[in-house]
Design a protein around this nucleic acid. Structure first.
Length: 275
DNA sequence: AGATGATCCTGTATGC
DNA sequence: TGCATACAGGATCATC
């Protein structure tokens, strides 16, 4: 599931390959991935454009073209955006192919078809994103203000992209472990010290995962079709029943905010959980 | 308004 | 072995 570190890994890879390349041809194989534009109109709009740069905001990728036009791309669960040599037929579940000058292509594949592309428009969710967790604007005080008065479990509030941009199920669980906080704690009940720990933990796990190129279970690939290496370093996510790396207690799993949450009942058992 | 739950989708894992 | 069912999750929408 691409979260901030995975999307940033894609951005880094594409930013090395796309700028300066012209789109020679566009094939729309799966029109469902285009939001608010017809396949023919999209192809006509993109064909002939030259890539200027690749940006990221939260889990959204931004493909900029010379002249100011842009695409926004969200990979959701299983989307892959890969720059590769244009050799052979595209793999199964490929929905978009952009043939580039010079023999390469930009390929968008997505098994579960949740991923979306927008042309020259900012999608609704992107307009209300919280701060970038690795920017200076994301401070412990800002996090504290975002949590104040919230009655929902801290895990659910961390998954809300209006709180912080870019956290998903993996790194929300990892950050709560590092901060020593139970995922079902009521967000508004965290003490100032706990908010500071959580703020630091969010930045720590995201920076670590970024360094290792993100987490790959089955699906994630970066912009060069390579998996991430952070899986082996996960502290709690998908480790139910395995010993806590810190204290040896078996990791437990609990459904919080409709999502499975993994935590150490000993390291994250302090304080009062809401229920 | 804030919180919760259903929805989309299909490959993989589990259960019988 | 084979079939049926459950499960995974990001964002959006509907319903409290």
């Amino acid at each position: 599931m691409p979260e901030l570190p995975e999307v940033e890994s894609v951005r880094l890879a594409l930013a090395e390959r796309l700028p300066g390349r012209r789109v020679r041809d566009v094939s729309v194989l799966g029109p469902h991935c285009l939001a608010g534009i017809e396949p023919d109109a999209f192809a006509a709009a993109v064909q002939g454009r030259v890539f200027a740069g690749v940006g990221r905001r939260g889990k959204y990728l931004r493909l900029d073209f010379v002249g100011g036009a842009f695409c926004i791309v969200h990979l959701r669960m299983t989307g892959r955006l890969v720059a590769e040599p244009a050799e052979g037929p595209p793999p199964r579940h490929t929905h978009l192919l952009l043939q580039l000058d010079g023999g390469d292509r930009l390929r968008f594949s997505d098994v579960r078809k949740f991923g979306r592309w927008w042309w020259n428009q900012v999608p609704p969710g992107m307009a209300h994103l919280g701060p970038e967790p690795l920017d200076r604007s994301f401070t412990a005080a800002a996090l504290g203000r975002a949590l104040a008065g919230r009655n929902a479990p801290i895990k659910a509030v961390l998954l809300d992209q209006r709180t912080v941009a870019g956290l998903g199920n993996i790194y929300a669980d990892e950050a709560l472990f590092v901060a020593g906080l139970h995922p079902a704690r009521r967000a508004g009940d965290l003490t100032e010290a706990e908010v500071r720990r959580l703020h630091h933990a969010v930045r720590t796990v995201l920076n670590e995962a970024l360094h290792f190129g993100g987490t790959t279970f089955l699906d994630f690939r970066n912009g060069l079709d390579e998996p991430g290496a952070y899986f082996a370093r996960l502290r709690v996510f998908r480790r139910s029943g395995l010993p806590c790396r810190r204290c040896g207690t078996p990791i437990e799993r609990l459904r919080v905010g409709g999502r499975s949450s993994h935590y150490c009942p000993r390291c994250q058992g302090r304080g009062v959980a809401c229920r």
